[in-house]
Amino acid sequence: MDLDRQRELNALRPDLLRFARLQLRDAGAAEDAVQETLLAALTGSQRFESRSSYKTWLNSILRNKIIDTIRRQSREQSVSSLADDEAGDDLLDDALFDRGGHWQDSAKPGRWADPEASFEQQQFWKVFEACLDHLPAKTARVFMMREILGLETEEICKETGISSSNCWVVLHRARLGLRTCLETNWFAGAGT
């Protein structure tokens, strides 16, 4: 059997658009990336047995379109330094670590029980998206290039014009921020 593609596309479009907006933080560019994805999807001739395999395929096209967009953007405009994201870093450090650099008791990472069970819940992904969206824009850009679009740090450095050591610091900040957000809003609460 083959899916009713047009109907599936219409149903999946909002998800794709949300995904692109989260990555690009630019409604116009996100809209363009999704349009190009839908166009490519309609001209493709592969057959899909299920909605989930179709969704996986669409997502891989969209990821590539987003990477193209990021590359184009970095050619067209010089990506300014990440300095403006760093203002809150000292505050975050003070909240998480004591003077000796040890975890504050209140901030000590807990043991996240059964992540696979969380991954099956729609509510978990709402929290996850909100936490990603909550990261400072440029920190989020670097983190998502690395972890969601799957680029190597070398290429991220090239596209964003930051050094690899700065890149590692930014990625560390992003991971620290994201895990704190997930622990507070999901794993420490009713979600587990």
């Binding site: 996986t56 997502n59 043991r111 996240w112 992540p115 992904w125 969601i148």
Partner: peptide
């Protein structure tokens, strides 16, 4: 450092979540 070993485990979970999210494998 138990906080750190939990943190390290969380880094792995974070990566798995990102992979799942990026590939459209969310429910």
């Amino acid at each position: 450092c138990t906080g750190c070993s939990n943190y390290r485990r969380q880094m792995g979970i974070l990566r798995a979540a990102c992979r799942r999210f990026g590939s459209g494998g969310t429910p």
